[in-house]
Amino acid sequence: MFSRIPDDVVRDDDELVKTQIGGVITIFIGSIIALVGISTLFKGVSSSTFIISILLGSAVITLGIYAIKRPESWWFRRIGDDSELSDLRIWYIKFAGKIAIGFGALIILLSAQHLFV
């Protein structure tokens, strides 16, 4: 059913990081679309939208801080990968943590608009 990747196909860390950065950008765009959907769903109830946005932003900031503090955690490992993390992979996880903190702060900042609507 599933085919194995041939042994002669080798992807180095640079290619993997480029792919993962593309994944982070895709997740960012998807999160923005999800927040727009939540905002539309709770159109008349601004306090519920504010509370949901604050909780979501806090969760993203917490995940970002955890990624910076513990990049070797099992949360950030590839499935089935028990090897030592490379320096590039640790740098990427910490970078993604910083982006997550910024994105969480942006969610909280933008959620304040629901208090004044």
Rank of each mutant, 00 (worst) to 15 (best):
F2K: 15
P6T: 05
P6N: 08
P6F: 03
D7V: 09
D8R: 08
D8V: 08
D8W: 07
V9M: 11
V9W: 15
R11L: 14
D13R: 12
D14T: 06
E15N: 13
V17D: 13
K18R: 12
K18P: 00
G23H: 05
G23P: 06
I27M: 10
F28A: 08
I29P: 01
G30C: 01
A34K: 00
L35M: 09
L35C: 10
L35W: 04
S39F: 08
T40F: 06
F42L: 09
K43I: 05
K43M: 06
G44L: 04
V45R: 10
S46I: 06
S46L: 09
S47A: 05
S48Q: 09
F50T: 05
I51K: 08
S53P: 07
L56R: 02
G57S: 05
A59M: 11
T62V: 09
G64T: 01
G64Q: 07
Y66D: 09
Y66V: 10
Y66E: 15
A67W: 01
I68S: 03
S73Q: 05
W75Y: 13
F76E: 02
R77D: 05
R77G: 03
I79F: 15
G80M: 04
D82H: 13
D82N: 15
D82Q: 02
E84Q: 06
L85P: 10
S86V: 05
D87T: 06
D87I: 02
R89D: 11
I90R: 05
F95V: 07
K98I: 06
K98H: 07
I99Y: 13
I101E: 04
F103P: 02
I107K: 09
I108E: 15
I108S: 14
H114Y: 15
H114W: 14
L115H: 05
